[in-house]
Amino acid sequence: MENKTVTETKKYPDKPITLIVPFGVGGGMDLVARLLEKTAPAQLGQPLVILNKPGGTGAIGWNEVVGATPDGYTLGITGIEVLLQPLYGPTKFHYPTALEPLVQISESPMVMAILAEQPWENLDDFIAYAKQHQGKIKFGHSGIGGIGHVAGESFSKAAKLNLEQVPFQSAAEAMTNLLGGHVQVAFLTPALANEFVKSGMVRILGVAGEHRLSNPDFANTPTFKEQGLDVVGSSWFGIAAPKGLPIEVKNKLADGFKAMINDPEFQKNIEQLGLQVTYLDPKESAEKWLKDSQRLTKTVQETGIVEKIKEQKK
């Protein structure tokens, strides 16, 4: 029996590997998965088969990954929601512990966007205005409890403002409403804001990351931390497997994905999607999950997001 497993793991992978995408076709996560699909046969030795299992903000797909046999033939693509979901109430599995991260692919910090025609040149102008005009400023984001909402609320709290939030169905919808002047601020990914920054329609007041963005269009945009506010919130994409993967399989996958992410063509494609390649190996990913989980737990409690969601769930 034992021998059989050993030979099986040695032969791994000898059939296609299923990659579960817990969101719909065409979303950011789905696109990253499809880019991986493109380079997989060369680097993993087997094709990746993408299976979209949308629903429950990722829960349906991730439940399936957790429940799969940990043989390396069923993997899932992951995002920040893996950490956020369990904070808002009981989920079927506690994803941060039930899943084993193999790699982080990309990371993008949220940015705070306003219309360029607004009189606020920088964050201080904005904060001064918002303090004088209570209830005038509303910020848009891509859904309650999402990372855009978390970043917005933690900014609102750090700057001692009482900004009201307007949830939208997607970040693109939040952007549309920012451009139409229906909300004054939007917290979203740099990828979405990029074209409007370039054309001079939108100004970015702060980046919710540890460092400035490497994209030249954002090179002059300071982080919130530089401006004295502790506001950090990034969305990221990664790959995870169900817990209990044989070590040989895990190593093979980690190496394979590393090679895929280092592939220059893959990097070029990822950048075309407006994402920043930020590779982390399995150990670093696990450490990041732990650290982010702790920080997010604190943030969502302090900003009252958890309370708000629990209240609505009643």
Binding site: G55, G56, P167, F168
Partner: peptide, 20 residues
């Protein structure tokens, strides 16, 4: 299903598949 704004499940009786 899942309310697209608040992310709260409504009328799903705890059935995950209905979230969609």
């Amino acid at each position: 299903g899942l309310d697209s704004l608040s992310g709260i499940s409504r009328f799903t009786f705890g059935i995950d598949e209905l979230d969609r």
